[in-house]
Design a protein around this nucleic acid. Structure first.
Lengths: 208, 208
DNA sequence: ACTGTAAGCATACGGCGTAAGCCCGTCAAA
DNA sequence: TTTGACGGGCTTACGCCGTATGCTTACAGT
């Protein structure tokens, strides 16, 4: 026992956890070094003892989210594992609305992120996909998941862009007709719709 | 003839054109009101006589890109039109690497953007899709296109993340094995691969 | 008790978006 | 021709931002 100091020591992990909390409530644009420091009871510059630059924190946040996605089971049918994992990923992406954008800006290079990707690719290869097709499959899945997460998040509780801030849609009848679907659809059902198309298409590819 | 003044008058369009050029060379993070003003031979604050805020410029840039995508032909098979248009959109997204991120942050509410979306939705509905399925189809297409554009752009000419700045991939054999595909693949072929799966899946849906 | 070291703090710099007010060229009305 | 309003561009200033630099402080090992 070294005796509890009055100050809980700062660590990279504590910083990233706080950054996630701060970004979850208020968006990434609210995440500044000063505010993050304040949240931790510390000056902004103290963070730099544990973190190289702000980008380092952002990368850590991405990895934090990937770590929270359950890895796919390796011992069941690949279709099942992929479905489950895609839905779990979507959940996380929606829970942390800053994730998709951040991921797009910074890429997927953290350890947990790579582990996740590696497992998915392994799943495809074990199922019999060629390396190239495994890559195709990963890419399709990633695009679909991120795309849907993005769409699910545009707009908040009720005031999303398609009901309040939209311009006059009188010139765009098809958009106008589909506004209810754009605004109030059951996202998980929607996501599953496309997911099944992708999985079926990939499975067909597997059968030569 | 009113006589040519020595100063070409500023307009919203001229500002947005310059913003696109500036962002194309150097990325969005290089796009500041001051630099944009300098590019136009004007002080930053002068831009505010023609533009409400910087976000206004960003929205204009999104619309600029959508305006550059040829609208789908309405008189040929929907599969053909969709294929062509998706490829044309991908081209534009890749030509303006800031587009996908910007679009994700700001949404698709500009006039040209809505017109584009309206045409696609109209195409699906004319082909016999229900409103709900037309929306599904749009969403899948958008996700796929943006996802591939994003992946095509991560990293520049030769030094992309998968060859230079990557961490040790020794712990991630599947990622390591697919690195060549991630780095040097033929993007248009890849994109078409997934596009065909999506179109086929949608066509199957159409046949009840 | 002394001292090396690392963690945290204070200050400062250059850049950002933009609010507020000035200045001056242009042009319509007198 | 004079004048006076107006609008576009300019200047200044404010409060943010990320972060380089150097100081202070408190604990660990002797």
């Amino acid at each position: 026992m070294t005796g509890t100091t009055t100050r809980t020591p700062l660590t990279r992990d504590r910083i990233i956890d706080a950054a996630v909390v701060l970004a979850d409530s208020g968006g990434v644009e609210e995440l500044s070094m000063r505010k993050l420091g304040a949240e931790l009871g510390v000056e902004a510059m103290s963070l730099y003892n544990h973190v190289e630059k702000k980008d380092d924190i952002l990368d850590g946040m991405i990895d934090y989210v990937f770590r929270a996605i359950p890895l796919p089971a390796a011992d069941s049918d690949w279709r099942l594992s992929i479905r489950e994992t895609a839905l779990a990923a979507l959940d996380q992406f929606v829970e942390h609305p800053w994730m998709v954008n951040l991921l797009m800006q910074r890429g997927i290079y953290g350890p947990s992120s790579l582990r996740f990707m590696d497992r998915i690719l392994g799943l495809f290869r074990a199922a019999g996909f060629s390396e190239e097709d495994a890559h195709h499959a990963w890419q399709m899945l990633a695009s679909h998941t991120m795309g849907y997460a993005f769409q699910q998040m545009s707009g908040g509780e009720d005031k999303d862009g398609w009901e309040s801030n939209s311009p006059d849609l009188s010139a765009f009848p098809n958009v106008a007709a589909l506004t209810p679907y754009l605004a109030n659809c059951e996202f998980e059902t929607e996501f599953a719709f496309g997911l099944e198309i992708i999985i079926a298409g990939l499975a067909a590819r597997l059968r030569d």
